[in-house]
């Protein structure tokens, strides 16, 4: 349903051109959940915003690549087509529920406006639809809550309202950019549960962007790991966690504290590279515990590592497997 082909997104800044997304290819099947993980600055949000062309232009430009939604290239759409795409086919849930709602209008008015923008229908019908959506996302007593202002809702409830808005026109793809980062854990658990239920009921595909490996482990069918504007590993959730085939993913998994065992944490040394002047060879080479001389010259492509599993590293799956223990103990 969504196909991204060799996408490049550049941000034109006063310091130079930031290659925020640097040749990304993947696709999303109807009804599945894909998680994008990566650290801040890895390009995951810019990538997600590109799917609806929400990156402000300028500074964003799309020098190369295509984004197909139902076989239409989003990057070549005119304003009218984009309006139709946003909301109808692809909808977005943003990170911060505090700033994504207009504080001076009632929640119901904002929701009804969204419903009517996509399909002309009488106000009364739109209001009924709004109440139904609020009920679907688990807001108690939606008939009266529809007349509340955003400040009268808690953070978790506001995030539910935003999910209701995104669902207004029954999109085929829901893009959720860090939807639970601003929420407390017990509320996060409620919202993640809600996303699963919604997916079941509406059959939408979900693209969830997060830095929390726990969230993707719980929610995603497939995971896309980004580093410095590129996909460095892509595979099923099981592949990523149990058959890790790429040093960055492996290091990332080792750096998180886990329950129980009180071992010393193993950080990834250094910082992500500059995206204005990326290193010549592999982007991860300066921080990679597996790096060899060759890595400084060879920029590895994403290559298959098994059924539907891809990784970008000059080490093959078996080579990586055989020296993993050695690196881990050093």
């Amino acid at each position: 349903m969504l196909k991204v082909d060799n996408l490049h997104v550049h941000l034109d800044t006063s310091d130079g051109i930031v290659k925020a997304v640097d040749g990304v290819t993947f696709s999303i099947e109807a009804g599945e959940t894909i998680g994008i993980v990566g650290e801040s600055g890895s390009g995951k949000s810019v990538l997600a915003h590109s799917l609806m062309r929400l990156n402000p232009e300028p500074p964003a430009t799309y020098p190369k690549g295509k984004v197909y939604v139902n076989d239409r290239n989003v990057l070549q759409m005119n304003k009218k087509e984009l309006r139709h795409l946003r909301g109808n086919q692809v909808a977005m849930v943003f990170q911060d529920p505090m700033s994504s709602l207009n504080p001076v209008f009632k929640v119901g008015k904002q929701l009804i406006e969204g419903i009517q923008a996509h399909r002309k229908r009488p106000k009364k019908e739109a209001k009924e639809k709004a109440i139904e959506l609020l009920r679907d996302v688990g807001i108690p007593d939606p008939e009266s809550r529809i007349d509340s202002y955003p400040h009268q809702f808690s953070g978790g409830m506001r995030q539910r309202v935003l999910i209701a808005m995104a669902l207004a026109s029954e999109p085929k793809l829901l893009v959720a950019d860090e939807p639970t980062t601003a929420l407390d854990v017990t509320i996060q658990a409620q919202v993640l549960d809600l996303l699963k239920q919604i997916q079941h009921k509406y059959g939408a595909a979900i693209l969830i962007i997060t830095h929390d490996l726990g969230v993707v482990a719980q929610l995603a069918d497939r995971i896309l790991v980004m580093y410095a504007g590129r996909i460095v590993e892509f595979g099923s959730t099981q592949d990523i966690f149990y058959r890790t085939a790429m040093p960055y993913t492996w290091s990332l998994l080792r750096s998180i504290p886990t329950a129980g065992a009180k071992r010393r944490l193993i950080p990834i040394d250094g910082q992500p590279p500059s995206l204005i002047h990326p290193p010549k060879g592999c982007n991860f080479e300066p921080r990679c515990p597996f790096a060899t001389d060759a890595c400084r010259h060879i920029d590895p492509d994403l290559e298959p590592r098994g059924d539907g599993h891809q990784a970008a590293c000059i080490l093959s799956a078996s080579e990586f497997e055989s020296i993993k223990e050695e690196v881990a103990s050093s």
């Binding site: 996060q188 490996l213 482990a217 149990y242 886990t258």
Partner: peptide
Amino acid sequence: AVPVPDPSEERRLDRIVLNGE
């Protein structure tokens, strides 16, 4: 409520989802 970064463990665990705010 803490999502565990381990796909099998997480799906096995019975979670207590607190109601309300």
